[in-house]
Amino acid sequence: MVAIDRPAPREDSRMWIEKIPAAYWALVVILLVIPSFASDFVMFQIFGWTFILGLIALSLMFLGGYGGMVSLAQMTFAGFAGYMVAILGASAIDTISQGWPWWVVIPLALILTVIFATAVGWLAVRTEGIYTIMITLAIAAAFFYFTRQNYDVFNGFQGFNSVLPPRLFGVDWRGPEAFYYLTLFWAAAGYFAVLYVARAPFGLALQGVRDNPRRMAALGYSVTAHRVAAYSFAALLAGIGGILLTWQSAQISPGTVAIQPAIDILVIAVVGGLRHPIGPFIGAFLYVLLKTFAVDVLVALGLGGERFNLLIGLGFLVIVFFSPDGILGLWEKLRASRNRDPLTGRERH
């Protein structure tokens, strides 16, 4: 309606590859060459973990940012996928683990995760806003207690250990470099998948549903179907992240799907920013850095390493209190204020 008067944008005659800003090229090159100089610890623990947590938080960003549904059950879906890989594949608990080959286990685990998430999503979309947060939190808690109490299938408190990735092409995928590239690949795949879906008809309709469900319903879109489908897609991302997470620590136990990790994922996504898919990765990087080095900082301040949660909580509180859009929001604010002329208050040209 407003767009009618606007002149048509000039056709950009450059190739698509030329349109990518230079900063992106720099980022890609840096990410690809990091293994040539970084230590094993940095690759495996810091970057591997960042990409995994980023991927799980990305699934929350997709639901929250594009669908307007903040789900605390994303870690549960990730943990479910991890459990399925441990139960159907091989682990040290060979009385429960089936030991099926990886090309059956991984697709099956992801399919089961998507089915589980679709059921949860169908339930959760019956509620809105804050109720969604509550019901997904309740589901996450129920799954956590269930895995802790059930010994027949989930092996209770202990969970499963020695859950290792398959030795595909003769590569040990838990080796630092291989694992770095593996997680980088899936993080990038998830990132671009979310970017693509957000601009595809489904993503646009989903954003429409977020902004005005009644109008979308009047236009003939099924609001419920779009929301449930968003849960299914997000669970695929979370499931991949969960399988990688299980391989990284080589184990899965109820601690992985407890309430604290579920809230951590929310913290990561919100601190990074729910507006753009890059946000969760920024948040995850900060979180991992904090989690890894905060102990040293705290000890240096004379507080003792166990006050880590205080630091995380305070940081989270400050960010959500002052910038609901997270670090991406802060960045945008900063850019806007730099573009503004301090005398007239108008945009500079």
């Binding site: 903040v70 929310l266 166990e306 949660n309 205080l310 995380i312 909580g313 509180l317 209190f321 609901p324």
Partner: peptide, 23 residues
């Protein structure tokens, strides 16, 4: 009236308070 922000801020508060009480 800002549901989501209230939720997030109170989650932050509960993390901080829980840790202070543990301390």
């Amino acid at each position: 009236g800002e549901d989501l922000r209230q939720t997030l801020v109170t989650i932050g508060i509960s993390i901080v308070v829980a840790d202070l009480m543990l301390w």
